[in-house]
Design a protein around this nucleic acid. Structure first.
Lengths: 176, 176
DNA sequence: TTTACTGCAAATTATTTGCACGGTT
DNA sequence: AACCGTGCAAATAATTTGCAGTAAA
């Protein structure tokens, strides 16, 4: 378990002490579930921790190889450099483990490849806008929508554990 | 184009005359788009017209072969028996055509196989509940949710054309 | 030293495509 | 006759799995 210090990656509130880093929670949860700390998994966790929105398995593989997209700068706050090449099979295996522990969530955008993103407990979660022309995916969040979902969830014949909302359309560039 | 008679599958309102059958609209749209009336496509359209919720390509193939699931009784109101074996390739091709004409909509439920269902213009559309344990998919609709989406759609950097909402959890049987 | 982690290559699974034939207009 | 629609079999593409070697506890 992580050391409790208010100085590094921690938030101290009146009622509880929580880590504010998804990465730390992920590592801790993995260890608690009886996993060792492999390098490939650490790299994937660190990358996901640095991302704001959902990635595909291939995007993760490319980014860790040192991809030329915007996903540079995967460096832990403590200077840990976890980036390293990770085989695609491992990427899928790791994502699967993380999903089972509810540390990551699948995002289906109707784009053949499934996307994955971290699940943050103490943050308002977001949903997705998908441009069907160029394929770009953007996050958004909306209070009214969340409360509508919450109310609804009580009245439905399902013990709801998650929900996913995707808006499709044309982004500004494509609609122009 | 279909004969305009107020007696069969038609709704006459003060301002417009519309067919209330998705199947008829589908056939008309297909012809207008320059398609001929093949038997396989008619069978798929008729089956989709008889369904309340989303099916996978394989479910469609099975149902048309005379599957032992609940999807029996595919018989047109006028007695047309369109059921016949349809190859899987044709099922996919036909679904693709129908999707491009916005007659059917993909539903991604996180279950490896994509589902498809008809899009009804003059009906309130629904969304889906998915039991992650047994895989059952149920439709639901909610006014408050729809209006939240509508409001939201105006404020987002996307010209929104569709939206999809999926609630995941455990159905009553599985949660018991 | 025991058990998990990882890469590689092969296997699966859903979906798509090429081609030849049969049906519709 | 001209052309679309359909089935079959082969081709793709994403994801999964078997196995052997490597690393963490």
């Amino acid at each position: 378990m992580p050391t409790l210090s208010a100085s590094e990656g921690m938030v101290v509130s009146r009622d509880q002490i929580v880590t504010d880093s998804w990465g730390e929670r992920a590592e801790a949860t993995l260890v608690a579930a009886g996993h060792k700390r492999g390098g490939a998994r650490r790299a994937v966790v660190e990358l996901l921790d640095s991302q704001q929105c959902a990635l595909t398995a291939v995007e993760i593989e490319d980014a860790l190889r040192g991809g030329a997209d915007g996903t540079e700068g995967t460096e832990g706050a403590d200077g840990t450099r976890a980036r390293r090449r990770v085989s695609r099979a491992s990427v899928y295996r790791i994502l699967d483990e993380l999903e089972q522990l509810r540390l990551v969530q699948r995002v289906e955008t109707g784009q053949t490849m499934v996307r994955y993103e971290r699940v943050c407990e103490h943050e308002e979660h977001h949903h997705h806008l998908v441009c069907d022309e160029c394929g770009v995916v953007m996050p958004f969040s909306d209070k009214a929508l969340e409360s509508a979902i919450e109310t609804l969830s009580e009245r439905v014949p399902l013990k709801v554990s998650e929900h996913e909302i995707v808006l499709h359309g044309s982004c500004r560039d494509c609609a122009a």
